[in-house]
């Protein structure tokens, strides 16, 4: 059995005019999410470690800048622990000297991470396919991913517009209402359709990338990606990740082992993301095969 999707297979159907070998893509494997998830455990860990290292460099810069802003005061740490008696000076100096470059550096880092997101996610998704040649096909997938992203920009602008427009209209209509709850709660409700559309778009994007990693064309990937849906599952797993974020934040404040426990929560968040990608890939594989 030839299981490499890029390999040729014999087309022996009666309709073959020459009865000779033709190269057609193999249908993707329709296996479930768990084998894909397990297959990519190493890649998931690697992606997590790289992200954590980059974040650690940024966090260390912030921490050192804060400590540096405390000037010659040797008991900065104790001061914070005792209710921050030198915090106003520290924060003021931090704002004067360190905050600007750090903020710009952090913005640059986020931009780099955003640019790297597509190739890394296609590598991650490729590792889930279990196909030996996924690294060889990766550059092609990245190009397709860029193409799909350009197409996905159009609906993103639409759903983004919806997210802004509905609350703005509500605000204009009910700003003068004497009961502020009508305005505020209505404004929150008006955000929901846009938010739902954004989540649907995010799920679509992940499914499209999952399909591209299975070597589907841009058009096919966008089509099956849209058909895959699963917004509710996306929301649930996002909420789980959010819960892990809150847990990590709380754990990070513990006096001992806080850092290690918070990192465990962060690692768990990466594996939740991996599980979602595996589910997405399994879903689009079935759709491509059908």
């Amino acid at each position: 059995m030839i299981d490499d999707a890029s390999s040729a297979r014999l087309d022996t159907s009666a309709g073959s005019p020459l009865g000779v070998v033709a190269r057609v893509p193999a249908p993707p494997s329709t296996e479930g999410a768990l084998p894909r998830f397990r297959r990519a455990l190493g890649t998931t860990f690697l992606v997590h470690v790289v992200t954590a290292l980059v974040a650690a460099v940024a966090a260390l810069s912030v921490s050192r800048a804060l400590a540096g802003s405390a000037g010659p005061h040797p008991f900065f740490a104790e001061g914070f622990a005792r209710g921050a008696p030198i915090a106003p000076e520290t924060l003021a100096t931090f704002g004067e000297h360190a905050l600007g470059p750090l903020f710009l550096g952090w913005l640059g880092l986020l931009a780099l991470q955003a640019l790297a997101a597509l190739p890394i996610s296609l590598l991650w998704l490729g590792a889930m396919t279990g196909e030996a040649g996924f690294l060889r096909r990766w550059p092609r997938h990245v190009l397709r991913g860029v193409g799909a992203s350009v197409v996905l920009l159009v609906p993103l602008v639409l759903v983004g517009g919806l997210t802004v427009l509905l609350p703005a209209l509500w605000h204009l209509a009910f700003d003068a209402e004497s009961d502020p709850r009508v305005h505020d709660l209505g404004l929150l409700a008006a955000m929901l359709p846009g938010l739902a559309a954004v989540l649907r778009w995010a799920s679509w994007t992940d499914h499209t990338r999952a399909a591209i990693a299975l070597d589907a064309s841009i058009g096919a990937s966008l089509r099956v990606g849209f058909r895959a849906g699963a917004t509710a599952e996306y929301v649930l797993l996002s909420l789980l990740a959010l819960g892990l974020f809150a847990l990590g934040l709380w754990l990070s404040g513990l006096p001992s082992l806080g850092l290690a426990l918070a990192q465990l929560a962060a690692l768990a968040r990466s594996f939740v993301r991996a599980f979602w990608l595996a589910r997405a890939q399994s879903r689009v594989a079935r759709l491509l095969a059908s």
Partner: peptide, 29 residues
């Protein structure tokens, strides 16, 4: 004043990491 260098507060790095890491993950893959 002290002969020892300025200490980093316990947990400051952990807090900063716990805040920054999810941001990177959010815009990441």
């Amino acid at each position: 004043r002290s002969a020892a260098p300025t200490e980093l507060p316990d947990g400051l790095f952990a807090r900063a990491l716990a805040l920054l890491q999810p941001l990177l993950q959010a815009v990441g893959p």
